[in-house]
Design a binder for these strands. Structure first.
Lengths: 340, 340
DNA sequence: TTGAAAGCGATACCAG
DNA sequence: CTGGTATCGCTTTCAA
């Protein structure tokens, strides 16, 4: 790292003919006990010299940095980028910087990144993304976060509980269940599921909710009509291919994310099936483009931007007990699931 | 900001029975002149005590933080999130943290954010996104960046030149020109353009390239067949609506981004026109979902992830003169533009 | 109100 | 190789 020559507070003080202490107060003075005259003079001098406070120095003495650290699985995924967008908007309003890292869903990396975050002494750490069942790192991660919290930081998880930390919980089970009801009401009878990794709680919940919803309408979801794949567009494509290869009679397919649904839709078309015509297709998340595809995608709305905002609200609010904010989801029927 | 109680190096040193200096060397010692015995003991002690280095303290004395600051227009836009993803991958490899901010294309905010970035003493600042013509803040921004660079930081711009800084330049003109050729070769004759804000250089370039390409095939793009809108999905929808209202005879529409094309496509359908059948539709960027929509979108590929990587390469490489990396673009013909 | 000086946590130079 | 100490830039008592 090249050393960076910068104007320091001492130089400003000197140029303005005041003490460092006074200069400090004039520029960042919490309790403004500086005469207007001096205050103005110092500020003008700082401006002229191009002074910029050294955030790190401030952090060292204050003990915490005006920063919120965000860990997401994959920023290129519209689900995460939409949530991040909400977080960043909230952070900006609060005058905080955002430091961001992507884990690519590798929990060992996740653990390391949280360590690095802690080194930064951020005001809050927000972890966005589903937890894995039987994650060998889970405990280490929780310990890190707990230690951080005990040292005075705030931890916010975005995904699903239970969590000892603040939580923004997405109602995956309820949403999937409502979707199942709606699809049956539309006349669906033979359902398939394009499932993201089962080990990811989000997928497990969406699957369980969907199966439950079907059951409540007297339909049993068969295990052979469920194909698992990566929780990505490509995973959806592959899983749908597998489903097609099984030679089942499906009239409706539920993919556990919109992204997977897009991939699944392409696989359907390649097999000569038009989603929305010969076969129904539904997703989950209601990402921005789901209404622009043809046919527009039936899905479950998850208010992504709001989630980010709520996460920041929790991160900034000052409370003792861990809180949970429930995020309701709602079914959106579009052309990809025709009424039969 | 709540004070955060943390284990300090001094405590580790004390517990391990060595001096602070030795403890420092044992843990971060660049030139490892510490006996293995002591080194191991100190490290073990640090581990036991849960010591985490204070990054800010390190930054104060070293003069720069192990960080790269990234400014993008809008992280929810797949164009920017894909580039960011590349940047973050590169940063991680280099062991750098990423601090990120979104400007929402407001250049006054952009200026302020760059100031804040500078306060952080990052190793590099990467600015992603098209510049505005006649931007009143342009000079202030350039001054900020220049000052930062003179203080030893690296500046990388991602978009278009000319730039006094390192630059990752996307060949917008060439791409649009090649697209025009391809579309004419497919039999297109009456072209319309759904244009993002003209003031944004990216759009101006894409429009100019497209017009030039058409001209080279003997077709003059009429101004009345160009409709301008926000550089977003909604802008594309609105601009296409406007174009449709003008009652022109168009057989092919070029939108200056895929996102705008998606919006335009929806507007077309609402007007009873099937893209890819009655009318051709092409975009620009080749974002992830452009091949999953129906009909798959003809577009110009921009290797988004690579761009982020290249930006990091420039940010990390140590050179005197500003460099430019040209990013080639290539036409991808898909079903949204039928051969006539 | 203002200034002098004691830290904050860590690095690195200089002796030993 | 190890330790003492000046120093980084800034905030914050504590006096004046």
């Amino acid at each position: 790292m090249p050393p960076q020559h910068q104007v320091t507070l001492a130089q400003v003080a000197e140029a303005a003919g005041v003490s460092i202490a006074t200069a400090s107060r004039a520029i960042n003075g919490s309790t403004r006990k500086v005469s207007e005259v001096i205050r103005a003079r110092v500020r003008r001098t700082a401006e002229e010299l191009g002074y910029l406070p050294n955030l790190s120095a401030q952090t060292v003495v204050k003990g915490a940095s005006p920063t919120v650290a965000v860990l997401v699985s994959d920023i290129a995924d519209p689900y995460f980028s939409a949530i991040s967008s909400g977080i960043m908007a909230g952070a900006r309003q609060a005058g905080l910087m955002v430091t961001m890292a992507t884990s690519e869903r590798r929990s060992a990396d996740e653990r390391d990144m949280i360590r690095t975050f802690r080194s930064q002494r951020p005001r809050a750490i927000v972890v966005v993304g589903s937890r894995w069942d039987e994650d060998p790192e889970a405990q280490a991660i929780e310990e890190q976060l707990t230690a951080y919290q005990q040292a005075g930081g705030r931890v916010v998880m975005v995904s699903q509980g239970p969590s000892p930390f603040d939580l923004v919980e997405i109602q995956n089970v309820e949403g999937a269940r409502a979707l199942a009801h709606a699809l049956v009401d539309q006349g669906g009878q033979h359902f398939g599921v394009v499932l993201g990794y089962r080990g990811l709680r989000t997928n497990a919940d969406r699957l369980a909710g969907f199966a439950q919803g079907l059951a409540e309408r007297g339909i049993t979801l068969q295990e052979e009509t469920v194909a698992e794949g990566a929780f990505t567009r490509d995973g959806g494509y592959a899983a749908m291919g597998e489903l097609l290869g099984r030679d089942l009679e499906l009239d409706t397919v539920f993919a556990t994310s919109d992204l997977m649904a897009f991939g699944a839709g392409t696989a359907m078309r390649e097999a000569g099936l038009q989603p929305g015509v010969q076969i129904g297709l539904a997703g989950f998340d209601n990402i921005a483009l789901s209404e622009d595809v043809t046919p527009a995608l039936t899905t479950v709305d998850v208010p992504l931007g709001q989630i980010g905002r709520h996460a920041m609200d929790l991160a900034l609010s000052d409370h003792e007990e861990a809180r949970t904010i429930e995020i309701p989801t709602s079914v959106i029927l579009r052309a990809s699931t025709p009424v039969r």
